[in-house]
């Protein structure tokens, strides 16, 4: 698994639950508590151990844990900005999700994320299909969508549907596009030191 995924988990656990708990989870998972390098690759099993240890210590179901991770990530300024490049409003953003894996590859060529397909089923309802090698990304994306709806100021119901197939399905129901004012976004960052 790409170090970015493991590093995300590490930062999420440490920032949300504190260093002590992170160290305990790392120990349980058999990982050095110094953690991961974002740009190195790690064995897939390490990620599984880390998630299992987190579930045990936090007493949270897997889906809820991964959804919280998605919310955490989309609220960090750097990823939030990169996601906001996707569209001018929440629907525009949803429509750009099919391109997200391509965008991710432009940034980090060896980071593997699932194929995403958004379908509009009318009445402000959408489904997002996540098809990937590692299950769990669906929950992470559900969290990302929740955080991004807030960011755009849209009111939406987002749920992970139970499916029998290998792919994960997120159901999105947009109730109001401009529910709140949303967060400010400027295309270009201010110049360094300015």
């Amino acid at each position: 698994m790409h170090g970015l995924v493991n590093r995300s988990l590490q930062c999420f656990l440490r920032d949300t639950y504190g260093s002590d708990l992170w160290c305990r989870i790392a120990e349980e998972a058999g990982i050095d508590s110094v953690g991961f390098e974002a740009l190195l690759m790690y064995d897939d099993a390490i990620t599984d151990h880390l998630i299992d240890a987190s579930i045990k210590w936090l007493g949270k179901p897997r889906d809820a844990l991964l959804e919280d991770l998605g919310i955490y990530l989309a609220r960090l300024e750097a990823p939030r900005r990169l996601l906001r490049f996707g569209g001018v409003d929440f629907v525009d953003f949803l429509q750009s999700l099919d391109e997200l894996p391509e965008r991710v590859h432009l940034a980090v060529p060896d980071l593997e994320i699932p194929e995403l397909r958004l379908s509009s089923i009318g009445g402000g309802r959408f489904t997002l299909e996540c098809k990937g090698r590692m299950p769990g990304f669906g929950s992470v994306f559900a969290g990302v969508l929740r955080a991004m709806a807030d960011d755009y100021g849209a009111l939406a119901l987002i749920d992970l549907a139970q499916t029998a197939s290998a792919s994960e399905l997120i159901q999105i129901e947009l109730l109001e596009m401009e529910f709140a004012s949303g967060r400010h976004f400027e295309l270009a960052l201010p110049e360094r030191g300015a």
Binding site: E37, A38, A78, L82, A107
Partner: peptide, 23 residues
């Protein structure tokens, strides 16, 4: 806009790489 996205993401990755090298 894609060019701006790439500029920003490249800066972030380069920064991370530089930090990794330092470590």
């Amino acid at each position: 806009v894609e060019l701006l996205y790439l500029t920003e993401v490249k800066a972030a990755v380069m920064e991370e790489l530089a930090a990794l090298n330092l470590r």
